[in-house]
Design a protein around this nucleic acid. Structure first.
Lengths: 134, 134
DNA sequence: CCGCCACTTCAAGTTCGCTTGAGGTCAAGC
DNA sequence: GCTTGACCTCAAGCGAACTTGAAGTGGCGG
């Protein structure tokens, strides 16, 4: 279980072979070589792909993901940049928290119109404040 | 300040007029009417747009957003569905937290290769576990 | 009353992240 | 040696979410 070809990677990760070829093409993953025409992937590809899917769920583009934990040895970016990224994610977590609270509130609040409910109005206010002030 | 036309909405929210027309076209926002050809928007459009941008940041499609807090009186969806949505968002928050910790770790950890660091490996394990088990 | 200009429509174009399809290659098993 | 099947390439297509451009309209200040 050292070297995998594309089908095995696809099977283990759930990422379709066509997507893997695409990722290879744009340099998001790298095959360790070829046997004939066939791409051969190292086992690290497996966890790289979970990072990628994590990043995608987080709403980052493939380019941004590539910039975060690129090919080789997981990142050579300046610490500063990484921390900035982390801060962005923190903001996003806050946004998501507001959204979640909003949905739960809407699900449970008995007020006739949500706009009449002070709790809802408060969430709305938070939602429309710029990220910098949250 | 009761009725706004598209340019004012654009200016106040930062959402380009072209996007507003598109949102109108797909029924994500609704103009209160027309003056001549010009769309007129009520003031509620402003906060609706902040909810929309919140939803977008959260990675929902415009369709999903429309389903969550549609046009009229902010949602007529079954509570159950809303709670399910909220739960999804909770999962996403967990994913983002892992990703953030990962980035901060990578920024600070002095280990020569991250794979040798137990903390990193633990985060990796979490990252590759299916959402249901997190 | 006239012209300006912010709006309008509609069609086409753009980027992202893939998928699909046609046609080709090659290693392995029969 | 031949077939099979999993891979390959390359081009085209696709849906989402808009943007851009051309050509038209109509309300309002002068």
């Amino acid at each position: 279980m050292e070297i995998l070809d594309i089908g095995e990677v696809a099977e283990r990760t759930g990422v379709p072979a066509s997507a893997l070829r695409y990722y290879d093409e744009i340099g998001l993953v790298t095959s360790v070589g070829r046997r004939g025409l066939r791409r051969q992937f190292g086992p690290e590809t497996i966890w790289q792909l979970s990072l990628i899917s994590l990043g995608k769920k987080a709403g980052f583009s493939l380019k941004e993901i590539a910039a975060m934990f690129g090919k080789a040895s997981v990142v050579e970016l300046p610490r500063q940049t990484l921390h900035a990224r982390a801060d962005e994610i923190d903001n996003q977590i806050r946004d998501l928290t507001v959204l979640r609270d909003m949905l739960r509130h809407v699900a449970d609040c008995p007020a006739p119109s949500h706009l009449e409910c002070p709790r809802f109005r408060k969430l709305l206010r938070v939602a429309s404040r710029p990220a910098s002030r949250r």
